[in-house]
Design a protein around this nucleic acid. Sequence first.
DNA 1: TCGAAACGATCATTGTCAATCATAAAATGT
DNA 2: ACATTTTATGATTGACAATGATCGTTTCGA
Lengths: 266, 266
Amino acid sequence: MHERERHGIILSAVQERPVVTVVELCSLTDASEATIRRDIAALHVAKKLRRVRGGAEALAPNPFPGLAGRPFAVNETRNIKQKQAIARAAVDMVEDGEPIIINGGTTTFQMVHPLATRRCQVFTNSFPIAEHLLKTSKNSVLISGGVIYREQNIVLSPFDNDVTRNFYARRMFMGAQGVAPLGVMEADPLLIQAEQKLIGQADELVLLVDSTKFKNRSSLVLCPLDRIDVLITDEGIGDREAAMIEAADIKLIVAPSSAAQEDVAS
Amino acid sequence: MHERERHGIILSAVQERPVVTVVELCSLTDASEATIRRDIAALHVAKKLRRVRGGAEALAPNPFPGLAGRPFAVNETRNIKQKQAIARAAVDMVEDGEPIIINGGTTTFQMVHPLATRRCQVFTNSFPIAEHLLKTSKNSVLISGGVIYREQNIVLSPFDNDVTRNFYARRMFMGAQGVAPLGVMEADPLLIQAEQKLIGQADELVLLVDSTKFKNRSSLVLCPLDRIDVLITDEGIGDREAAMIEAADIKLIVAPSSAAQEDVAS
DNA sequence: TCGAAACGATCATTGTCAATCATAAAATGT
DNA sequence: ACATTTTATGATTGACAATGATCGTTTCGA
């Protein structure tokens, strides 16, 4: 782990949460507290964040006040820029008025921003996505019913006969923990359940994964690769992975992450 | 939990309702009373809120407490004090851990405040209630699935086979537009549908209506009076109405509106 | 007036910080 | 090629701030 890497992790963590503690950053970066403090101090004088006792906080207030106090897990806040570019490319696929399904996740959550000016019919199992779309857009929002899991930020019914079965869309957008020749991988059994329920309610599965996900190997196989129709990722994807995707007959979309990035202030 | 985080939680809690007690903030933040007092004192000198005995209050009263960005219709925010007293009496009926059903509505919404320090299992079709309980309490929250109606602030599935049918509780708490010898009256067809779905999933129906509702005559009969088991109202109820309620074999609870009032500045 | 709740002060404990030193890897000089 | 310097990092320690618990006092309502 190099200095740049750590700084990137620290900055993305700070951007999505009001405060991040030194200890949290230690476990994120496998660095010692001393190093994290030095990093925070350096980023502080560079005016990239504000140093506070116990950790660091973002300079600008959190742009998603709806999520304050109940953020996504910290280790899922990385690669924000790539995720935003991917989410934008995903939203570019849909037309106004079109019904879509969005599965919960940190990458798919980024779709709420480009969706703010749209008027689609969105079905989701993610409470934060529903909340955000409800408050900041005119999209028609549907939510699946069931228990609201705070940690995973999803709504999941233990029963099969819920409203999910009555919604159908041409496209479903989903995230994942990892992508491998074996298939799409996910870590959390609850997320697997939630995604399984939604797969099958759409013709076309669109997978949103930043390029680091190709290196992840989670333990649970969500579905085989050939179930996926479109995969959107960022420019960090390697040739081998791209070949793997296209060999599985998946349409590969690489979201431009350089040009359209600087204007995004999250 | 660190200082900044607590301050954020305290400030958002104070903005969502006129007054927050120290004890409520303790259960929200898992901090001790001493720490909360220190935080409130610090935020007071920082002019972020006003310190009052028992807790803290917002500097500028929020005209639509709890409903940032998407308030209920303004004419439904009347009789706030009575509604809060009624809601408190309703929450007093339930024990920690008990499953309850709360139907959407402005009166039932007030239950989120006394529920903040509880740990019940709450099933609701109200998006704001679910949202609030998720963010400001440790209750287990379940939500019905379906279309989220912005105006009525409820989630309603057009299908019968949703998760609602799989949840059962001893008590259901509901509001209404009016109460007459004919039965419980409601104005909005959507609300009728939503309430109809929930009635039947509970043994006991508890109706929360402020005393002005006895004069309302809406057009739609939700259910006959004898379907109601308990009715909670405020001291403004007249003798004739009280007699009517007890004639229908309904347990009448009059929430004391004087004692618990003065701390409420709406 | 009395009792309960809230408050303020105090103190022990815990957690956080800054300074210092040791180690290892990379860069540099001989 | 070898030794030295530089740099980044991790570990240790004493100082200090934050927290939680206790206890006596004050405030408020009955």
